[in-house]
Computed example of a mutant assay.
Amino acid sequence: MTADAGRRPTIAEIAALTARLRTLSQAGRVADPAEVDRFLADKREILDRIDVDDLPSPTSGFTRSSAQAVRELAAEGHPDAEGMVRSYLDDVSERVGVPVHQWGLDERDMDEIRTAEVRGTHDAVQHAHVAITDRRTAEAVSPFAAEEATVEDEAGFW
């Protein structure tokens, strides 16, 4: 391989180096020592051309399985972590038109799950408030209103 310190390694160069590694690995102990030395020199040359600042941070591409996401959310104190993850994956599957339940969840996904839980909790509290207010209004008009419907019936989510 030709040394070109200012040029990033290409996919073709990395693929060729990987093919050479496979060949050397298959040869095992009978591999030509001179070829092993050439391979190691070419590998070092390619590695030297990789700029560390161009690499993603170790956590930027980190994904976790659904089960890991559930454990993480549960450890944060979310009592319905499993439901949160399942609901999020169902919603994403519907939006993209294919099942995504086996895909990894990255930090953006986790933030979306947490935000959806806060939004859902807020909506549930608001809905309950409206139901209670409506019932109190109905009781003020008719003392029999309390017998006609319960808060749970009116809230519709209990």
Results as ranks from 00 to 15, higher is better:
residue 91 D to C: 07
residue 98 V to F: 08
residue 109 D to A: 15
residue 102 Q to M: 07
residue 125 V to W: 09
residue 124 A to M: 03
residue 101 H to D: 14
residue 120 G to L: 08
residue 111 D to T: 07
residue 85 V to F: 07
residue 83 G to L: 00
residue 85 V to C: 04
residue 108 R to V: 15
residue 86 R to Y: 06
residue 113 I to W: 03
residue 105 L to C: 11
residue 85 V to S: 07
residue 117 E to F: 14
residue 95 R to V: 07
residue 115 T to E: 12
residue 84 M to C: 07
residue 88 Y to R: 00
residue 100 V to H: 00
residue 83 G to I: 01
residue 119 R to F: 12
residue 125 V to H: 10
residue 84 M to Q: 05
residue 88 Y to E: 10
residue 120 G to Q: 10
residue 89 L to R: 02
residue 106 D to L: 03
residue 100 V to S: 00
residue 104 G to E: 02
residue 102 Q to H: 12
residue 111 D to F: 07
residue 107 E to S: 10
residue 100 V to L: 00
residue 109 D to R: 08
residue 120 G to S: 12
residue 95 R to D: 09
residue 118 V to A: 12
residue 125 V to E: 11
residue 119 R to N: 13
residue 114 R to I: 11
residue 120 G to N: 09
residue 114 R to G: 15
residue 118 V to R: 04
residue 83 G to P: 13
residue 84 M to R: 02
residue 106 D to K: 00
residue 91 D to G: 13
residue 95 R to C: 02
residue 106 D to Y: 04
residue 91 D to P: 00
residue 115 T to Q: 06
residue 88 Y to P: 07
residue 91 D to H: 11
residue 107 E to H: 03
residue 124 A to Q: 09
residue 106 D to W: 03
residue 116 A to T: 13
residue 89 L to N: 02
residue 102 Q to A: 13
residue 113 I to D: 12
residue 92 V to K: 06
residue 106 D to I: 08
residue 123 D to C: 09
residue 112 E to L: 09
residue 116 A to V: 12
residue 95 R to P: 05
residue 121 T to K: 07
residue 123 D to Y: 10
residue 124 A to P: 03
residue 111 D to A: 12
residue 96 V to T: 06
residue 117 E to G: 10
residue 103 W to G: 02
